[in-house]
Amino acid sequence: MKDIEKYKSSEKFVLVTLRMLIGWHILYEGFAKLLIPNWTSASFLKESQWILKGFSEWIISSPGVLNAVDFLNTWGLILIGLGLILGLFTRIASISGAILLFVYYLNNPPLIGLEYSVPAEGSYLVVSKTLIESMALVVLAVFPSGYFAGLDILVEKYLNRNK
């Protein structure tokens, strides 16, 4: 891994910009769910195909589990979004976001032969925007930018105080 102190300023700029954009998107996705009265992931999970179909059906079948999933999803998105924008625990936020988006992708991957009753808002073959965003978060996890632009600077400083 390249030493972060040796990044060119253009490299730092694109990494931080990408982090802000994805953070913004994920934070709004979280808030949107919070602001829609009685929002639930049930309709999304009902559409689940492929390998997570059984798991999604299990979630819907129990109101308690569904409520828990809805709560964790909404607040998970908000916390990941905040982490990315603020550059706080950037690596954890990036990895959690990548996993969450990958789970979304696995619920309705645009594979040949899988039909969904809700049309996608683009044209996809195997690769979707969700998958790309998930991969972009993996990039942000590998090149964490919070250490040179974000609250992680302060976290690092605090952790290394007594060393």
């Binding site: 603020l86 550059g87 632009a149």
Partner: peptide
Amino acid sequence: TLLKALIGIPVLGVF
């Protein structure tokens, strides 16, 4: 360095 640490705050404000 402090300014760099707080870079996310204005973005959050706009958000």
